[in-house]
Design a protein around this nucleic acid. Structure first.
Lengths: 234, 234
DNA sequence: ACCTGAACACCGTTCAAGT
DNA sequence: ACCTGAACACCGTTCAAGT
């Protein structure tokens, strides 16, 4: 029979909103967003699913909190979202901040999908946008142009962009897509020719799928340069 | 007792993939994407849920098919995705095609969210991209630049863009957001000032939320103009 | 104050069975 | 060939109850 002197095996840290959210991020990182269920999350925390509801309103609230946590990670990585009072180069400042956000997003590949479903704004995200608007404003933007800029950037402001053409499992689906396009060269001459050239330029990857980082920066710079022109012509 | 001569009340059109997909679009249009469940869909078709599996592999296949149907609707509205052999103005041609896609998307507000989750390419979408690449190519683009263009456009190529800041229920959430920002004017001076100016410029809507169409076109033109410059400097 | 057991309403999906 | 009933494994969530 166990006596009183048995060493407490686990100090039994009490649950908290923080711990729940941290565990949620961990689960999504390890098993993807579909692994993030109330029951699974509870198991990870060594608790019953229903206990979660004491610390969090419902699953929506968890997803809200998880997005907030990710943007806070960006904020920490950036050393805060503060706006310098003198902005000598808004373009590189904005560019750097966004590419840094992208680095964090890349370490949580499920996060963009969750962010897109959120209707409640994360407070950390508002701080992030506040910082961006500040950089633009101090860089000479009117508020009107800064507003257009946010819309033009869209999800790029948070470091990701919608990839419409690429499958999530490159190795497997690439071959499929390649075979399909080969077969349909007469139906899709332009696309097949385009992909052919890309494969040529980049013989490394099996059939030369795209360099997402390069493409992200291309699109970002296109927008930033366009904004710069608006700034100068006004 | 019913006799054999009773008029058949409904001819009982047999199910088919087409009918299933059409019904799926209808349900999503009327009740949002969360209303699109196998059981609900079956009910709409006057059938048991399990019958659907005879015509369609699973729910994923339905979502794939539904995306295809929406892009086909774009195709029909556009009178096909054909590429004219002579393109005198690629910019306005691409612009028109994209804005037309947007019109269709606006009538299926749930569609962007579904498209974003798809990993399998819709064949109709491939035809659409084929058309876009064709327009660019005949307009003087290298395949390399056309490829960059697709990435830069991202979801805009299909007529929608990620709205990170706006709630789906404008009437209700606007007031909330407004109150929140008022309260936090000292924490978010730039954003509050920005929103203040926008409200000023557009006194119609309660607190002047954004004109999505204007913003979409602003971002689209920014990208198209940027591409044009790349085209000229090469 | 914090956690749980049992239960509910709802998913997508299977499988053997009906016509 | 086409459809169904019963069942399964899994959701998020409630509520009264335990400590």
């Amino acid at each position: 029979m166990a006596t009183r002197t048995e060493p407490v095996p686990e100090p039994r840290i009490p649950l908290s909103r923080e711990r729940v959210l941290r565990a949620a991020v961990k689960i999504a990182d390890e098993g993807g967003i579909e692994a993030l269920t109330m029951r699974h999350l509870a198991e990870e925390l060594g608790v019953e699913a229903m206990s979660l509801y004491y610390h969090v309103a419902n699953k929506e609230a968890i997803l809200d909190g998880v997005v907030d946590a990710i943007v806070e990670e960006i904020e920490e990585t950036a050393g805060g979202f503060d706006v310098p009072t003198e902005v000598d180069n808004w373009k590189s400042a904005v560019r750097e901040r966004i590419l840094l956000a992208r680095q964090v997003m890349l370490s949580h590949p499920w996060a963009p999908g969750v962010i897109e479903t959120r209707t409640n704004q994360s407070l950390a995200a508002v701080r992030h946008f506040e910082g961006l608007v500040g950089l633009l404003r101090e860089g000479g933007f009117t508020y009107d142009l800064a507003h257009h800029a946010l819309h033009a950037l869209g999800s790029r402001a948070l470091g990701f962009s919608q990839e419409l053409f690429e499958p999530d499992d490159p190795d497997q689906a690439d071959a499929e897509a390649a075979a399909m396009f080969e077969q349909m060269a007469d139906q899709f001459p332009y696309i097949v020719a385009m992909l052919g050239e890309i494969a040529h330029d980049d013989p490394d990857s099996t059939l030369g799928w795209c360099d997402d980082q390069v493409e992200f920066e291309f699109g970002l710079d296109l927008i930033l340069n366009g904004l710069e022109e608006h700034l100068e012509t006004t």
